[in-house]
C-alpha cells in the first residue's frame, strides 16, 4: 500500500512536468489540444531576441554570483574552523538569518537600501563631476549579482562547513608529521577532500540564481532575467513557446542539480 502511495506521489510530482514537455512539441497553436509532433516552438524560441537576451543575462548573473559565493563562502568556512567566541557566534547567526529571511524581504530590503545609497552617491558625483553628464549608479546586473551572492554564499558556507566537519583529520596530521608545509598540506590534502562540497555549493548557487524570480524582480531595474521574462510572458497569456523554453530550462537545471546531488553524496562518509 505504501508502495502504491509512493508511486502516486511520484506521479503527482512528475506528471505536470511531463505535460509541459509534451506540449512543448505540440504542432498546434492551442495550449490544451495536442495536434501533432513538431519542433516549431523550439525554433520560434531560439529566434526570440528578447528571450535570448534574458537568457544571456541570467547566465551571466548566475555564473558571476555563484563564483563569488563559492570563493567567499569557502574562504569563510575554512576560517571559521579556527575562530571561537563572539565572532563565530555572530557569523553563524548572520548565515542563519541570510538563509531564513524570506527572499521577498531580502528583495525589498536590497531595493530600498541600494536606491537610497545610489541617490546619495549620484548627488555627490554630480556635485564634483567636471563634465556635462556625470555617470549614474543604478539598479541592474550589479544589484542582482550582489543580492544573489548573499544567499548563495550562506548556502556555500553551510555546505562546506558540513564537509569540513566530516573530514578525516588524521590525514592532515599525517601530512604535517611528514614535514609538509601548511600550504602544501592544504593544497594536497585538505582541498581535494573539500572539493565535492565546493563544487556542489557552486552548482546549487548557480541553480538558485538561475531560477530565482522574486529577488531579481525587485532589484533588476530595467534588466530582464529569464524568470522575469517568462513571468511577464505568462501574464500576457499562455503560449506553447513558454513550454518549449520551460522544457529547455528544466533540462539545464536538472543536469546541474543531479551532478550536485551525486557529488554531495559520493563524498559523504557512510552514516554511522
Amino acid at each position: 500500500m505504501l508502495r502504491g502511495y509512493a508511486a502516486f506521489v511520484y506521479l503527482f510530482l512528475y506528471a505536470p512536468i511531463a505535460l509541459i514537455v509534451l506540449f512543448s512539441f505540440n504542432s498546434g497553436n492551442n495550449a490544451s489540444d495536442f495536434q501533432g509532433f513538431a519542433f516549431s516552438w523550439y525554433v520560434k524560441a531560439a529566434n526570440n531576441k528578447l528571450m535570448l537576451g534574458a537568457l544571456k543575462n541570467s547566465l551571466v548573473v548566475a555564473a558571476t554570483s555563484a563564483t563569488l559565493a563559492t570563493v567567499m563562502g569557502t574562504m569563510a568556512a575554512l576560517a571559521l574552523q579556527g575562530v571561537r567566541g563572539p565572532l563565530r557566534t555572530i557569523f553563524d547567526g548572520l548565515t542563519y538569518v541570510a538563509i531564513m529571511v524570506p527572499g521577498i524581504v531580502i528583495g525589498i530590503a536590497t531595493l530600498i537600501a541600494l536606491v537610497t545609497t545610489f541617490d546619495a552617491a549620484n548627488a555627490l558625483i554630480a556635485g564634483i563631476w567636471p563634465g556635462e553628464a556625470p555617470p549614474k549608479l543604478g539598479l541592474g546586473y550589479g544589484s542582482i549579482i550582489a543580492a544573489h551572492t548573499l544567499f548563495a554564499m550562506a548556502l556555500v558556507i553551510v555546505i562546506v562547513r558540513a564537509r569540513i566537519a566530516g573530514m578525516d583529520r588524521s590525514l592532515i596530521e599525517a601530512s604535517a608529521d611528514l614535514y609538509a608545509d601548511p600550504v602544501a598540506t592544504f593544497r594536497q590534502v585538505t582541498l581535494p577532500q573539500l572539493m565535492p562540497g565546493i563544487v556542489a555549493g557552486f552548482l546549487l548557487s548557480f541553480t538558485f540564481s538561475f531560477d530565482d524570480f522574486v529577488i531579481a524582480f525587485f532589484v533588476a531595474g530595467s534588466q530582464q532575467t529569464l524568470p522575469i521574462y517568462v513571468f511577464s510572458s505568462i501574464r500576457r497569456g499562455v503560449t506553447p513557446e513558454i513550454n518549449a523554453i520551460g522544457t529547455a530550462v528544466m533540462l539545464f537545471s536538472l543536469t546541474a542539480l543531479i551532478t550536485a546531488q551525486v557529488l554531495l553524496r559520493r563524498g559523504r562518509k557512510p552514516a554511522g
Binding site: I17, L204, D211, V230, M250
Partner: peptide
C-alpha cells in the same frame, strides 16, 4: 530535485 528546478515553470 524538483524543489530546485524552475519553481516558476512548475507552478505555471
Amino acid at each position: 530535485v524538483p524543489f530546485w528546478t524552475s519553481f516558476l515553470i512548475r507552478t505555471y
